Simulated scan of single mutants.
Amino acid sequence: MVCTKQVYICHDTITGIFSAIYDAWKESRDTEAGIALRGCLMPQLFCEYREVDEKEQKSIAVERLIKNNLGYNAYWDLYHALLSDGPEKADAVYQTILAARKVKDSRKIMEHLSNPHVAKVFELSRKVANEAHLFTEFIRFRELDNGVLLSEITPKGRVLTCIADHFTNRFPLENWMVYDKTHKVFLVHKAGMNWILVEGEELDQTEAEKVSTAELEYERLWKGFCKSIAIKERENLACQRNHLPIHFRQDMTEFR
């Protein structure tokens, strides 16, 4: 008799993936199971595919399970891995949670890098954390006519929640937005309040180009400053790329 592997299919969101982990943990944790993202599914033999009923309650339950049994540090590694663009991230996180059951101290699961799933989670988590850190340096806001500060970015991972607190602390009394063009999500902050994520909306490019008069002047001055401090004879493009990767330049004032 051939054993069938259960594969749970979900959307590429925290709620969707945690819901899939909830179902897999509840129904198949003692048998072979996996998780696949919708749109990234590679059909395999001897697998039974199931659509996941995605619910916030399931996501909360899995978050609590991870924090209570694996600890906050491991939770943030798993969470950051799920923000990456890796198609295998959901299954890697689920398999890491399963692997934690077999180690003496589940809170040290992320130290077991000999496990390929743990190593993959570590790699994806570090990738997202590094990208988020770079965006805290390379994000450029522009002031619109209505006084709102707007920035457009093109990240590989879903880094908005990673950078939200940084800019909230820096601009607590400003109205600002960061638009993730890759995933079409807004990070929105209202003066004096906390930030929120807004999905399912498109950026109005016409309105986004209506910048204030002061903004135009500061852009001109900033570009002039960057040009004036450059020494053409000492130009080193390879060194520039190490400090400022080309991927980030498309949304920076200096290179527009």
Rank of each mutant, 00 (worst) to 15 (best):
F135I: 01
I109T: 04
R220F: 08
E215I: 04
E143T: 14
G192L: 07
L197R: 12
N130M: 12
K223F: 00
V103L: 09
G157P: 15
E217C: 06
I153L: 08
F225I: 09
V118Q: 02
I139T: 12
R158T: 06
Q205T: 11
T213S: 11
L150I: 10
L150V: 06
E123K: 14
L221I: 13
E137I: 08
R101W: 06
S212F: 08
V188E: 08
H117D: 14
R142N: 09
E219Q: 13
L173W: 05
A191H: 08
S114D: 11
V148C: 00
S212A: 08
V148F: 03
E219C: 03
A99I: 04
E199G: 04
I153N: 00
V148Y: 03
L197N: 07
V159G: 01
N194S: 12
E199F: 02
L216T: 08
V159R: 01
K223M: 05
K108S: 03
I153Y: 03
A100S: 15
A99S: 10
F141D: 03
E217V: 10
M110H: 03
E209L: 09
R126S: 15
H183Y: 11
F167P: 00
H117K: 12
L150E: 02
C226S: 09
L173D: 11
L124M: 15
K181P: 00
K190I: 14
E131A: 04
H189L: 11
G224S: 06
G147I: 12
E137W: 07
T182D: 00
E215T: 05
E143D: 07
T168H: 11
R142L: 10
D180N: 09
E137Q: 14
C226K: 14
F141L: 07
F135V: 02
N169M: 13
A191Y: 08
L216I: 11
M193K: 15
A100H: 02
E174A: 13
E219P: 01
A100T: 04
F167T: 01
N115W: 05
V198D: 13
V178F: 04
E215Q: 15
L197F: 05
L124D: 11
E209V: 07
R107P: 00
E219I: 10
E199M: 08
E137A: 11
F171H: 12
S125R: 02
V121Q: 01
R142V: 15
D204W: 06
I109K: 01
F138E: 01
T96S: 13
V148S: 00
R140D: 12
M193Y: 10
Q205N: 10
L197T: 13
E123F: 12
A164K: 07
K223D: 01
K127R: 14
E123C: 07
S114G: 08
H117P: 03
G147P: 03
V103M: 10
C162P: 00
C162G: 02
V159C: 09
E202R: 09
C226V: 03
E137V: 07
N169E: 15
H183D: 12
I196A: 01
E152G: 04
A132S: 13
L113W: 05
K156F: 03
K184A: 12
A99K: 13
E152A: 09
A164D: 07
R158N: 14
K120A: 14
V188Q: 05
S151H: 06
F135M: 07
K190L: 15
S151V: 04
N115Q: 08
T154Y: 10
